[in-house]
Simulated scan of single mutants.
Amino acid sequence: MTDEEVLHEFRSCDALLEGHFVLSSGRHSAHYLQCARVLMNPDRADRLARALAQKLPREVRAAIDVVVSPAMGGIIIGHEMGRALGKDALFLERPTGTFELRRGFRFEAGAKVLMVEDVVTTGLSSREAIAAVAREGGKVIAEAALVDRSEGTADLGVPFYPLIDINFPTYAEDEIPSALAARPVTRPGSRTI
Rank of each mutant, 00 (worst) to 15 (best):
M1E: 10
E4R: 10
E9H: 15
D14L: 13
L16G: 02
L17H: 07
E18Q: 12
E18P: 05
S25L: 11
G26C: 06
H28E: 07
R37E: 02
P42L: 12
R47E: 14
L48I: 01
L48P: 00
A49D: 04
R50T: 09
R58Q: 14
V60G: 05
A62C: 06
D65N: 09
S69V: 06
P70F: 06
P70K: 09
R83F: 06
R83G: 07
A84V: 07
L85T: 05
K87C: 08
A89C: 10
L90N: 03
L101W: 11
R102H: 13
F105K: 03
F105T: 04
F107R: 09
G110E: 05
A111R: 00
K112I: 03
E117H: 11
S126D: 07
S126R: 06
S126L: 06
R135T: 12
G138V: 01
A144T: 14
A144G: 10
E151R: 14
E151P: 01
G152E: 09
G152W: 08
T153K: 15
D155H: 12
V158P: 04
Y161L: 07
P177Y: 11
R187M: 08
R187S: 08
R187A: 13
P188Q: 01
S190D: 05
S190Y: 03
R191F: 02
